[in-house]
Design a binder for these strands. Sequence first.
DNA 1: CGCATGACGAAAT
DNA 2: AATTTCGCCATGC
Length: 112
Amino acid sequence: MGELSAADRILAAIRAIPRGQVAGYGEVARRAGLPGRARMVARLLSENPDPRLPWHRVLRSDGHIAFPEGSKGRAEQTRRLRAEGVWVENGRVRGIKAAATIDEQIWGMPPD
DNA sequence: CGCATGACGAAAT
DNA sequence: AATTTCGCCATGC
């Protein structure tokens, strides 16, 4: 039977992040069965050609967007996340821990 | 093989 | 809480 490559498992883990939610690079790596390989996740994303991949849902472990301030990527990622109802402020996603508020559980989206 | 690079992480400061 | 330091992993030269 065909074994999935590490890259395929990482991509699958990224695609598995639900809309409106986020995950850290290292977190994605662990979910793909590759603990300690956050940088591999980052490398794959940097070279990913698939526009369908929800790359914007992947952040640093501290909730920060990896792209530098003022960069196009930072702006685009912020835009995409907000479009899914994620609260982003100063290149930082809030609610990493308290991700599930009552409203999110009921409406699948944080309150206005 | 050694060294630099990078969409990283955890701990120390 | 923000930065710096150091560790890790995959690649490319």
